[in-house]
Design a binder for these strands. Structure first.
Length: 717
DNA sequence: ATTTTCGAGATTTTT
DNA sequence: TCTCGAAAAT
C-alpha cells in the first residue's frame, strides 16, 4: 500500500518532509492525525528508521493507544516505539535513570487527589484553613515554586534526606513555606512524584548528567508532537532538549484550539516556533474533511468573534448536507435531556446505532440530570470522561492495598486502613500520626505497636496487620491477580460493597482483576508487584466504551482530537458555557475556542440545547452569548425563544463583556509576568487579589511573596 | 467519647 | 459523585 495514497498536497508534504524543523498549522478536521500516522509509517517503512528511535508525543494516553493501533495496521509491526504523552515518556525514562540522581526507581505517580490528601494532613497539623488557601491554590503555589527554584529545588530538597526535609518543614512559619516544605516531606516519604515532578525531574537529570542526556538525544532520531498549541513550558523545554542532537522536529497544532492555558499551556510556542528554530518549514492544512459546510460556517462565525487570533478559514471539502445546525430552547434541564433522547430515537432509526451520538458539556456536573433522564427513558449511555477507570475510588482502594503490600507507604496506608470500616477513625488515626511523628517511623510501624494498646482494643487493627503481612509473604509466590482477589476477599472490601448493593463498583473491581490477569499473561517476564504498579501509572483507560452501543457523554475538553457523526452541545447557558468563573477577556476567548472545539467535533449533525430557570445561585439563566453571536441564518431555532428573553440575554452579555474589559484595565500585569519595583527590585507576579486590589508578588530578594496594591507603580521587565 | 451514618449542598476544564 | 456537618449508634 502506498503511504501517500489519498493525501492532499499539504498532507503529502507533511509526511515526506523528514529532515529539519517542520511546523504544521492545521485546522480542525484537516487530517493532521492522519498525516502524523502516515509520517510515522513512512519513516519506518521508507527510510528504515527503527520505531524505538522515534518519539511521537500525543496529548492523552487514549490518543496514543489509538495512534498505535493505526500504525500497527499500516506497518504490520508490533513495535511502535514511543507513542505516548510527555508524562508517560518521563515515567519510562525515570524508571531507567532515577537511581542516577539518588531517587528510588520505584515511585508512585501522585494525582491531585493524592496531593489533596497530603495537603489536608499539613493543614490539620499546622492549623491552616481552607479559607486562607484552597487546595487548588496550594497546588498552584507549590507548582509555581518548583518551577522557580528548580534546579535548586531538586538538589536541595529531593536529594535531601527525609529528616532534614522535615526540619525545614517544622521551622517554616509562613503558610507558603509550610505548604511547600510539608508537601515535599510528604512526597518524599511515600516515594511520590507528581505530574510536574515527572517532567522537572527528567529535565534536572538532563541538566546534571550529560551522559544520560546524550544517550536519549542520540536515541531519538525523530521527534513529533501533536496538539502543540497546548504544550506548556516544562514540556517545551523537554522537547527542546530531546531533539537537540538530530534536529528533526515535527510539530502539529491549531491556535484556535488552545484550550489548556489554565494549565500553563502557551500558544506562543507554536506561533513563535520559527524564532527558536530557524529554517522552520511551515505547512498549512486548511481543508476540512470532517464536517459539513453548514457546521463549518457556524464554527467560523463563532470563532471570528475572538479578537486575538490569526485569521484562518476552514475550507469545506464535503458537499452541503442541507441540514442547518439546530438550537433547542427548553424549559428545564430535564426537558433538554428528554429532547436529546427523542432526537436520538428519531435519527437512530431501526438500526439503533446509539454510539453515533455524542453529548458534550462544559463541566461534569451537567451529566447528572442527563443520566437521570436517560436512565428513566431506558436510553443506553456511557460516560466517557469524568472519573476515569483508574481514578475511581474502588480502583484506587484496590491498588492502594497492593501498594501497601509492596511499599508500606503512608499514603496507601491512610487510604485503606479504615476501608472497610475497622473502627479506626479520626481520633485513632491522629494517635497513629503522633506516634509516627515522635518515633520517626511510618504509620504502618506505628500501628504495629499501637495495635496492642487499650486505644485500639475495639478495632480490627490486628486482623488488618496480619492480612497485609500475610500478603507480603505471598507476593513473591502467587500471581498478582490471585493476590488481589485474596486481598479484596479477606479484607472484607468486597463484602462491604456487596452488602451496600453497589454492583457498579463490584463490576469495576472484576474488570480490574481481569486487567491484572491480562497483564500477567501478556507481559511475560517482569510480573512482580512493583513493576506492575509502575505499569499501572503508565496505563489508563481500560474500556473506552467504543464497543458499546450507547450514547456517549463527555466534557468538551475530553472530546478534543475526537470526531462524532452527531453532536449535542448541552447546557448552553451563560454562566455554564461560558463558565461563570471566566474572569478576563482572555479567558472568555478561551471559552469561545472551547466552544469552537466542541462544534468542530461534529461530522454530520450538530445540535445545541439550553434551558430557562435559575442556576443554583438563584440567578436567572440566559442562553449562552455564543449562541447569540452566531450569524442568524446559520443556526435554526426550535422553538424561537421569547424576544424579550433574547433582548435581556444580549444585554446581560454586553454588560458582562464591559465588566471584563474594565477589569482588563485595572490589572496591568498577569500572573507569571516579571516586574520591577522601585525599592524591592525584580519579581514575579504570582497571584492577583481582586478583592483587596493587589498583586501577590514574589520578589527575588525576599523569601516569601508580598502583597502590592494596584496603586503602586510597577514596571514590566 | 468516637465512629458511622445519613441528608443536604455544591461542582471548570486534566496530564 | 463527592464533601461536609449533625445526629445516631457503638
Amino acid at each position: 500500500m502506498d503511504l501517500l495514497d489519498g493525501l492532499n498536497d499539504a498532507q503529502r508534504e507533511a509526511v515526506t518532509t523528514t529532515e529539519g524543523y517542520v511546523r504544521v498549522l492545521a485546522g480542525a478536521g484537516s487530517g493532521k492525525t492522519r498525516a502524523l500516522t502516515r509520517r510515522f509509517a513512512y519513516l519506518v517503512g521508507e527510510l528504515g528508521v527503527l520505531p524505538s528511535n522515534i518519539l511521537c508525543v500525543t496529548f492523552t494516553n487514549k490518543a496514543a493507544n489509538e495512534m498505535r493501533r493505526r500504525i500497527r495496521a499500516l506497518t504490520g509491526d508490533n513495535d511502535t516505539g514511543f507513542i505516548c504523552t510527555f508524562h508517560s515518556f518521563c515515567v519510562t525514562l525515570l524508571q531507567e535513570e532515577a537511581h542516577a540522581v539518588g531517587y528510588p526507581e520505584k515511585f508512585i505517580v501522585l494525582d491531585n487527589a493524592d496531593i489533596d490528601a497530603m495537603l489536608a494532613l499539613i493543614y490539620e497539623e499546622r492549623g491552616l484553613t481552607l479559607r486562607q488557601m484552597t487546595f487548588s491554590d496550594a497546588r498552584d503555589r507549590i507548582e509555581m515554586r518548583k518551577n522557580k527554584y528548580e534546579p535548586r529545588y531538586y538538589e536541595d530538597l529531593i536529594a535531601l534526606p527525609l529528616d532534614r526535609l522535615k526540619e525545614k518543614y517544622d521551622r517554616a512559619t509562613e503558610p507558603a513555606d509550610i505548604i511547600f516544605y510539608g508537601y515535599l516531606y510528604q512526597e518524599k516519604k511515600c516515594f511520590g512524584l507528581d505530574y510536574n515532578d515527572l517532567l522537572l525531574f527528567t529535565l534536572h537529570i538532563f541538566d546534571t548528567d550529560e551522559e544520560i542526556r546524550l544517550k536519549w538525544q542520540r536515541r531519538l532520531e525523530y521527534v513529533m508532537i501533536d496538539e502543540f498549541q497546548d504544550i506548556d513550558k516544562p514540556q517545551y523545554r523537554l522537547m527542546r532538549a530531546l531533539c537537540a542532537y538530530h534536529r528533526n522536529l515535527f510539530v502539529v497544532g491549531d491556535p484556535d484550539q488552545t484550550i489548556y492555558t489554565w494549565r500553563g499551556a502557551d500558544v506562543r510556542f507554536l506561533l513563535d516556533f520559527e524564532k527558536e528554530f530557524p529554517g522552520t518549514r511551515t505547512i498549512y492544512m486548511t481543508e476540512n474533511y470532517r464536517s459539513t459546510p453548514e457546521i463549518l460556517a457556524l464554527a467560523d462565525s463563532l470563532i471570528s468573534h475572538n479578537r486575538v487570533r490569526a485569521e484562518k478559514n476552514l475550507i469545506p471539502v464535503r458537499p452541503a448536507s442541507g441540514e442547518t445546525p439546530v438550537w433547542f430552547h427548553e424549559k428545564s434541564p430535564a426537558d433538554e435531556a428528554l429532547r436529546i433522547v427523542r432526537t436520538v430515537r428519531a435519527l437512530a432509526g431501526e438500526e439503533e446505532n446509539f454510539s453515533d451520538f455524542t453529548v458534550l458539556y462544559r463541566s461534569h456536573f451537567i451529566s447528572r440530570t442527563l443520566e437521570e433522564v436517560f436512565l428513566r427513558e431506558k436510553m443506553p449511555y456511557y460516560i466517557y470522561s469524568g472519573t476515569q477507570f483508574y481514578d475511581r475510588a474502588e480502583i484506587k482502594d484496590a491498588l492502594s492495598y497492593l501498594r501497601l503490600v509492596a511499599f508500606r507507604d503512608d499514603l496507601s496506608f491512610a487510604r485503606v486502613v479504615n476501608r472497610p470500616k475497622r473502627n479506626i477513625g479520626e481520633r485513632r488515626m491522629r494517635a497513629l500520626r503522633e506516634y509516627a511523628e515522635k518515633n520517626g517511623c511510618s504509620l504502618w510501624q506505628a500501628l504495629r505497636v499501637c495495635a496492642e494498646t487499650e486505644l485500639f482494643a475495639p478495632t480490627q487493627a490486628r486482623a488488618f496487620l496480619r492480612l497485609i503481612e500475610d500478603c507480603a509473604e505471598r507476593a513473591g509466590k502467587a500471581p498478582i491477580s490471585e493476590l488481589l482477589s485474596y486481598l479484596l476477599d479477606k479484607s472484607g472490601y468486597e463484602h462491604a460493597l456487596r452488602t451496600e448493593g453497589d454492583n457498579n463498583r463490584l463490576d469495576n473491581l472484576a474488570e480490574l482483576k481481569q486487567a491484572v490477569y491480562e497483564y500477567e499473561t501478556t507481559c511475560g517476564e517482569e510480573t512482580d508487584l512493583a513493576s506492575y504498579l509502575e505499569h499501572v501509572a503508565l496505563y489508563s483507560a481500560a474500556d473506552d466504551g467504543t464497543s458499546r452501543n450507547a450514547v456517549r457523554f463527555m466534557t468538551v475538553h475530553t472530546a478534543k482530537g475526537l470526531e462524532f457523526p452527531n453532536v449535542f452541545l448541552v447546557s448552553m447557558s451563560d454562566s455554564i458555557f461560558p463558565s461563570k468563573k471566566t474572569d478576563s477577556a482572555a479567558a472568555m476567548e478561551e471559552e469561545r475556542r472551547l466552544a469552537f472545539v466542541a462544534v468542530t467535533r461534529a461530522r454530520d449533525r450538530l445540535f445545541f440545547t439550553d434551558s430557562e430557570g435559575r442556576g443554583h445561585d438563584g440567578d436567572y439563566r440566559y442562553p449562552s452569548r455564543f449562541l447569540l453571536e452566531i450569524d442568524r441564518p446559520l443556526l435554526s431555532r426550535e422553538p424561537e425563544p421569547d424576544e424579550a428573553l433574547l433582548r435581556d440575554a444580549a444585554q446581560a452579555a454586553a454588560q458582562s463583556e464591559k465588566l471584563l474589559a474594565a477589569r482588563e484595565g485595572t490589572t496591568e500585569f498577569a500572573v507569571g509576568e516579571r516586574i520591577r519595583h522601585a525599592v524591592m527590585g525584580e519579581g514575579t507576579v504570582v497571584g492577583i487579589d481582586d478583592r483587596q486590589g493587589a498583586y501577590l508578588i514574589q520578589f527575588d530578594i525576599l523569601p516569601t511573596e508580598r502583597r502590592i496594591s494596584f496603586k503602586v507603580r510597577l514596571e514590566r521587565v
